[in-house]
Amino acid sequence: MSNLNQAMVEKYRNSFLQEVQANVEEGDWVKMCMQCGVCAGSCPMGPYWEHPPQEIFMMIRAGKREEVLSSDSMWMCTSCYNCIARCPRGLPITHIMHGLAHYADRLGLAPKEQPTRKFANKFWDNLTKKGRVNELKLGLALYFMNGFFEGIKVALANQKLGLNMLKAKRMSIAEMFGGHGVKDSNGLHAILKKAREIELAKADEFKG
């Protein structure tokens, strides 16, 4: 169990709902759900969810901390905003899902092999290096995410797409070597470092 996770368990022994309200982006909205289920029915990824949003909200209220945070359900969200548009109570469900996923990740409880999570991490790593996404490297990283042979297979399948992107100058071979970035990448790193410090300070606070 990560330190942060342990700290949170200690702090919110009795109420996972309160933990979510305090720590999850837009988590304060969870209590407003009235269990109508329109979000669950409206999600285009619906059939792939183990627990649809409304059920996750109920699980949060029921204190099912482990189950919720280790669930891969909220990682299914594709940000289509159907649920938000239809929710009769105006819950920002998309944001709550991302908030929960992020929180689970921070606590180290997110499922390790969850592809969205993996993609998100790779995307983040790729982006934060130079402040710009390196499409070529990101693409390759994703192709080979699940092993070398799988990577070759996916790469071959997407050969045409890749060539077209090269032709249309949407991607450049030169990206392999360095690639483009923001003007002041040191500044960017400084910003990110500061943000991280703030986050950790918050986490320390919880420990205390």
């Binding site: 289920g37 329109v38 029915g41 409206s42 649809p52």
Partner: peptide, 19 residues
């Protein structure tokens, strides 16, 4: 709360989707 309704063109039946 029903999410949405589509029409089955052949039968004219509305099809309700939801959870």
């Amino acid at each position: 709360k029903v999410a949405n309704i589509v029409e089955d063109k052949a039968s004219g039946n509305p099809v309700l989707r939801g959870v």
